[in-house]
Write a protein that binds this DNA or RNA. Structure first.
Lengths: 343, 343
DNA sequence: AGTTAGCACTCTGTGTCATCGAGTGCTAAC
DNA sequence: GTTAGCACTCGATGACACAGAGTGCTAACT
């Protein structure tokens, strides 16, 4: 639909958007002519701007205050105007440096990743930890704690660990626990977690198991271990958003921080990007959470081998520096994938 | 020094503090007489207030604005005036309810604890995860990931799990890994982690090991597993602080959120309370971080058996409802200890 | 001597008003 | 189609007066 835009309109729109990204303030016709090398008079630009407003690309906060790009404008900007540069060498090196000085616990790595995203983009970094369900089973272990409490540890192919304390109703000797885990490891090796669940169910029904107390106990334990806790998210750099002039207002700030407290919603949002090929962008109120009205999200999935594990991204104001941030998100996702992969 | 206070001064000081806790606004002499049943005239109260200011208990923001209790006043309040009630039945039940509906992963439990602290106190809940060092060794496991990567899993007596991916320089067969962990589990069973470290060092020097390749590899792996990552902190409810009128100012808010991003400092602060008998209170700028100028921290250690594991607490404005929050922190710590203990 | 009433004084917060400046929209001329 | 000119709008800023809350001091009271 928008393709009725003339070349000149596009240039002007781009100029306005870029100006607005820099200043966070409504852009007037004069600024456009001055800053941009267009040999046009302010009056002409005004006419064009008026058209752009009609088309829904611009909005005026009030009569005499220049114009502000709408979500639609940013969408157009991202889709059609923006040429994505590859990442700056400097930033690439910085990302690498961060990862190098890094302990190798997977959780730590994810947290560090969100820190990297935030510190390099100057916005908010976010990483959704891998769901077990999207993962390949590697091993299960049971550790006897005091009394009848058992610690179950589940390890995936990519080294993600999920652990859970199970309150058993009877005390099980350590040797039995070892036998149980051997049995399960054999049974489940190489399956994805969703297959694992199906397999457990199927095995429970089988005669062989029904009369073997140990096996059936083992299956029950594994079942309890598998039921997944809420996905973990690492969010870092929330303060950065406070630097943005458009959030200088206390109420807006509250809204935003409240949005971040409800991690469930965030996760739902990011989960939708799991299947995306590469970078995915949500602009402003485009898709989601009313609380994140004035924010955009740039996401990319990360993987281990062919297996998509989770999603990471950057959250910033709608007027964020897309050209700068998109390559950062993309590169970080690939870097993380490499580190989690067979590396 | 402060004991020169007359009974009447103390009453007035208490009234002012309580008023200020409620309203967050400077308290004038009239409010004191009105709200409190004291049969004194405002003028008299003014005289007393003037004395209290001289003694450093009160401060006036400006000439005509009533007075505000200082940190010193709150300290006095907490130490001498406050009588600690035991926890409300209602709140106790609420805490219990939260814990009941709870998956049993230790990490999850700690996170939920900080959520509980925040939601019941209406301030910020904070929990420092157990350090491994303060813990008793239970078991170590090695899981072979792809290639030469090994996942090491360390379990403590109380069921806390620490895991780490180790990049080995050669591929080690699974059977060897099992043998290695058996060897280590035998060697280290029942020691505290600091003893474990010493033991590993000592064992590495012994002849028996020096010529056994597998053992020495095992020791090296365990050493790598043990070097501790930064302590984890769970902070929940930061938005609550935004509701406090004294932080309505954008710059103050920024300061506070920045303080929370530097978790290292927070941890240092809380660590100091590890050895405290029970509840510990920091008021305002009393001890620490200049950034947390206007905040107080109420902490309590939690334990498993006799073994102090970590610290939890509530962070709120200096004018927080100490009488309400102290029992909450205390009770939650004991509850968590019970859950982590032999259950 | 301690307590209180009275009063002048101080300071902040609020509302009003005029002014300034940036920016628009329209019209008429180029 | 483009541009200059101009009237108009609207927010931001600063000056000013005024109300209200609170203090400190003095003088009178018990």
């Amino acid at each position: 639909m928008g393709d009725t835009l003339t070349e000149r309109s596009r240039q002007i729109l781009e100029a306005i958007i870029e100006d607005y990204i820099k200043t966070a303030e409504p852009v007037g016709s004069r600024s456009v002519t001055r800053r941009h090398g267009l040999s046009l008079s302010p009056a002409t630009v005004r006419n064009v701007m008026s058209d752009l407003e009609e088309l829904g690309f611009l909005a005026s906060p009030h009569t005499s205050a220049g114009r502000v790009p709408t979500d639609k404008a940013f969408r157009f900007y991202v889709d059609s105007l923006l040429q994505i540069r590859s990442i700056d060498d400097e930033q690439r090196d910085e990302i690498r440096r961060h990862y190098r000085s890094q302990g190798r616990d997977v959780g730590e790595m994810l947290k560090e990743t969100s820190r990297i995203l935030s510190s390099i983009s100057h916005y908010i970094g976010i990483v959704v930890a891998p769901r077990f369900t999207a993962n390949v089973f590697r091993q299960i272990e049971f550790v006897k704690l005091c009394g009848s409490r058992i610690l179950a540890i589940l390890v995936s192919e990519s080294g993600v660990v999920q652990n859970r304390i199970i309150e058993s109703n009877e005390e099980i000797p350590s040797e039995d626990l070892v036998r149980m885990s051997n049995y399960l490891n054999n049974l489940l090796k190489g399956l994805t977690i969703s297959e694992v669940k199906a397999r457990i169910f199927q095995e429970m029904e089988s005669d062989k198991v029904r009369y073997d107390d140990l096996m059936s106990k083992a299956l029950k334990l594994s079942e309890q271990t598998l039921d997944e806790p809420d996905a973990e998210v690492f969010i870092e750099g929330q303060v950065n958003i406070l630097e943005q002039p458009e959030f200088a207002d206390v109420d807006k700030m509250k809204e935003i921080f409240r949005a971040f407290e409800e991690k469930g919603q965030l996760i739902t949002l990011l989960d939708r990007c799991m299947d995306a090929e590469r970078v995915n962008i949500f602009i402003g109120a485009e898709n989601f959470l009313n609380r994140m009205n004035q924010l955009s999200v740039i996401t990319a999935p990360y993987a281990s081998g062919r297996n998509t594990l989770g999603v990471l991204g950057v959250i910033g104001p709608t007027r964020m520096g897309y050209d700068r941030v998109i390559p950062i998100v993309d590169y970080t996702a690939r870097m993380l994938s490499k580190l989690l992969g067979s590396g």
